[in-house]
Each structure stands twice: as structure tokens, then as C-alpha cells.
Design a protein around this nucleic acid. Structure first.
Lengths: 142, 142
DNA sequence: GCCTGAACCTCTATTCGCTTTAGCTTATAC
DNA sequence: GTATAAGCTAAAGCGAATAGAGGTTCAGGC
């Protein structure tokens, strides 16, 4: 019988977060002691570890819900889990691209700054000047 | 005299978002027509463009507030703006690292999946198995 | 002077994934 | 028996918007 604190320590999840996962139905309702405290089994620990690992990989709680459901039904096809993972990979790749562009512009910004008064500050200048940036709200798409 | 819709179109910002920026004091309170509609000057458009450009570079609204204040006081030193930008750059670099690690693990995951039943699904297996992942909640730091 | 329809208004709620706070109660070790 | 660590609930808060309801104003045409 594991306490919520043990689960917390073993998975690096805050106690409140575990209760939150129960509240939104991601974790099963835990059994209780006479005094009303939660007590868990190993399988609950496994489930929480699955959730946390998935979160670290950036899956949304909704995706995790799907993945857990698949995981609970071993006869279903693997294809669904695969497509969820692929979707996630695509998202990560997009965010990566975007961040790389940001990094480039930020680097350019701070590289050009020579630490004089704000009047000729390159950082602020770059922020003021929208022309060189990545926006395309008049353009062709996201 | 520009309407809120014009600002919206010119900066790619939703109308509600502009009102939200006013509400939280990031945009100055706009003048109003007799009927209560907002009317803007070019300088408001510039300010909004500055905000949006900064947002696209991932600056928080709080950072933007600081940057705007600097921008409004041209006599102050550029060093502050520079340090805000450098902080932002560090953050972006960290997120990049993290995302790159995620991408690697996701790729591994989907590469190994051979599309059979869930019982032997590699994706779910990887998610279940916490041992190879990036956590360090028992370890040395974030 | 009136009508229409697009654009505007306020106010409130919702999103996501938690985190924090306040004010208690229970379990455990000594 | 008591100290204290760990647990409990319920509600609010965070960032950064977004969405919706329900109503008002503006600009153009007739």
C-alpha cells in the first residue's frame, strides 16, 4: 500500500498534481484509509509513470487519455498509438523549427547591441522594426 | 484615425487580444468616438507591432512591459534591454535542447513500431518504460 | 431620414496543465 | 500524549489569450 507521497517521490509528480489527475479521471479513484487518505497499488504507480513520461514527451492530457485507453485494451491495433505518436512528433518538429528561427533572431539582436543609451539600442530597434521578422499575417499561411 | 479592426488586420492580432492588452495596461487606453468605439493613432499601431513582434520572439508580457518602458525612456541605458534579450535567448536555447531530446525519443518510438496489436506496441512500451528517459527527479536538477 | 450589415461594444466563461492558498484532519514516531 | 509530517477539500490563480452571448454603433446606399 503506497501513499500519495510515495507516488509523488517515485515519479517526481507533485502530490496536488496526482490528485488533479484523479479529479480529471486520468488516474483511477484511489482506495482510502478509514481516515480518508488515499492508498495506492503498484499498478497505480505504473499508470502515473506512464502519464508522466508521456507528459515529458509533450503529449497533451487528451492524447495521454487515448494512449492509456489503448494500453488498457491490448487487443486493439497498434496503429492508433503509432499515429498519435507521429502526430506528436510532427508537432515537436514544428515547434523546433520555430524556436530555431527565434534563436537566430535573438542572437542577431544581442550580437548587435553595443550597450549605449536606449536611443540607439539595437535590441529595441529590432523589436520596433517588424519588417525582417517571421510574421506572415498578410501572407500565405502558418 | 484607425479603428481596432484596422490595427487587428495590420498586426495580425485578434480584436479581443488588443482589448485584452488595453485591459492589462500594455496598450494605452484608446480614445473613443461619441458612440464609445476605440480610435487609434499611428503610434498605437507602432506600439502594438512592437508588442506582437516581441511576443513572436517569445518574450513574456512582463518582459514586454519592461522593454516598452525602456523604449519610452530613450535616455536610459541599453544594458537592461540587452539583458532581457539575453535572458530570453537563454530560455529559448534551453527549450530547444529539450525539444531536440524529445524529438529523438519520439523518433525512436515511431521507428520501432511495426503496427501489430497493442500488446507488442513499441510506442506504448516505451511510454511504459521509464528507465531510458530524461527524468531526473531523483537527480541533480532541472 | 431610414435601413442594412459589418464592425464594434461589454461582460463573462473557457482553455491547458497545473500550482497555490487557506484551513483543516490523520497517521506515525517517540 | 503530543509533536509534526503528511494528508485532506475546495476554491482561486497563473499566462496569454480565445470564445460566446447579447447588445450597440457606424458607414453606405436608397
Amino acid at each position: 500500500m503506497l501513499t500519495i507521497g510515495t507516488l509523488s517521490r517515485k515519479t517526481g509528480t507533485k502530490v496536488q498534481t496526482i490528485r488533479y489527475y484523479e479529479q480529471i479521471g486520468l488516474m483511477n479513484e484511489a482506495g482510502r484509509t478509514a481516515g480518508g487518505q488515499r492508498r495506492y497499488f503498484e499498478k497505480d504507480l505504473d499508470r502515473l509513470a506512464f502519464i508522466r513520461h508521456s507528459r515529458q514527451l509533450g503529449f497533451s492530457l487528451d492524447s495521454i487519455r487515448e494512449l492509456l485507453e489503448l494500453s488498457d485494451n491490448p487487443s486493439r491495433s497498434c496503429a492508433e498509438a503509432d499515429s498519435i505518436a507521429r502526430r506528436q512528433l510532427r508537432q515537436v518538429e514544428q515547434r523546433l523549427k520555430r524556436l530555431q528561427a527565434l534563436k537566430k533572431e535573438l542572437k542577431r539582436m544581442v550580437a548587435e547591441c553595443e550597450g549605449d543609451s536606449v536611443a540607439e539600442c539595437k535590441v529595441l530597434e529590432v523589436l520596433r522594426d517588424h519588417s525582417e521578422c517571421l510574421t506572415d499575417h498578410d501572407g500565405i499561411g502558418a
